[in-house]
Design a protein around this nucleic acid. Structure first.
Length: 291
DNA sequence: CACTTCCCCTGCAAGC
DNA sequence: TGCTTGCAGGGGAAGT
């Protein structure tokens, strides 16, 4: 479940393996809804281009190309962006890795879940986009062109201010958690960090957004920034599939306070962490600390 | 218009 | 042991 920290870690580490390199060839999986730009067109647009820089907008990555066009990528739920010098053992689940013949484990070989493969003129390590559940997205943008998915994004969670959130909550008849997950309000927050920030700010996820006070909004924004920055610093959360472009897993999952800790004692008051469904998502909170 | 439900997909774990 | 079932959730489309 890549959220802002995982996408930012991906951005930083793929940049070193992508910027300045010229694409000589492109291979894709068969057409599917992963491709907002059809594979044939995508190949035509990318071949011959050099990567200038990698930008992040919410959970989207944009690779700026030397003709001012862009390759947009969303990792979805299980997306992985990495280069081919990463041992394949790191990328696959333990059972899938065990099923591979020993020789095949040394280097990654594109499989059915590999939707994009970039080959470079320098003949160095290839870059792959792999996504088992195909919730990810690939999109090519002409120079100056945008896309409604990007246009719709609200303020980046790292830039958000308390008063922004407070203003966004007024008159909203939905839960504060649903609001935090709404990418049109705050860009980059997903299920893990919403739960963690709500816990730190001592706000119950199911609380009506309109009933969250100005002070609590300020606390929430501070908590959000804290957990997001902490996670980036520790390489993101690798609870299920996330892996950084260099093959390393994140470590933030070790420091999480509530997410996927139902039944465990709250770090503050020892009350068992409760799990409920809020905004159609598994939601974890301390029933004593969070009001 | 605001909000909720459904659904895309696959791997894995729990239950029978 | 092996099958079926349920669950994970980003986010857009469709429904209320």
């Amino acid at each position: 479940m890549p959220e802002l920290p995982e996408v930012e870690v991906t951005r930083r580490r793929i940049a070193a393996r992508l910027v300045g390199r010229r694409i000589a060839g492109v291979r894709t999986s068969p057409a599917s809804y992963v491709f907002l730009t059809p594979p044939t067109l995508l190949k035509r647009r990318l071949r011959g281009r050099a990567v200038v820089e990698i930008e992040r907008r919410g959970k989207y990555l944009l690779a700026r190309l030397d003709d001012k066009s862009s390759l947009v990528l969303h990792l979805g739920m299980t997306g992985q962006l990495f280069s081919g010098d990463v041992p394949s053992l790191r990328l696959l689940s333990a059972t899938a890795a065990a099923a591979l013949p020993p020789k095949a484990q040394r280097h990654f070989r594109p499989d059915t879940h590999t939707h994009l493969q970039l080959v470079f003129q320098d003949a160095g390590p290839r870059v792959y986009f792999r996504d088992v559940r195909r919730f990810g997205k690939l999109l090519w943008l002409a120079p100056g062109e945008s896309h409604e998915r990007l246009e719709r994004l609200g303020v980046d969670a790292l830039v958000l201010r308390g008063k922004d959130l407070f203003a966004a909550t007024r008159g909203r008849h939905t839960s504060i958690k649903a609001l935090l997950l709404d990418q049109a309000v705050v860009a980059g927050v997903g299920n893990i960090y919403a739960d963690e920030a709500l816990h730190l700010a001592r706000v119950r996820p199911s609380r009506s957004a309109a009933r969250v006070t100005k002070q609590e909004c300020a606390a929430l924004v501070g908590a959000l920034r804290h957990v997001l920055k902490r996670s980036i610093a520790t390489g993101g959360s690798s609870i299920s599939d996330f892996i950084a472009p260099d093959g390393r897993r994140g470590r933030y999952q070790r420091g999480r306070l509530v997410y996927a800790r139902a039944g465990e004692a709250c770090a503050t008051c020892r009350t068992p962490i409760r799990r409920a469904v809020v905004a159609q998502r598994g939601t974890h909170f301390c029933p004593a600390c969070q009001r």
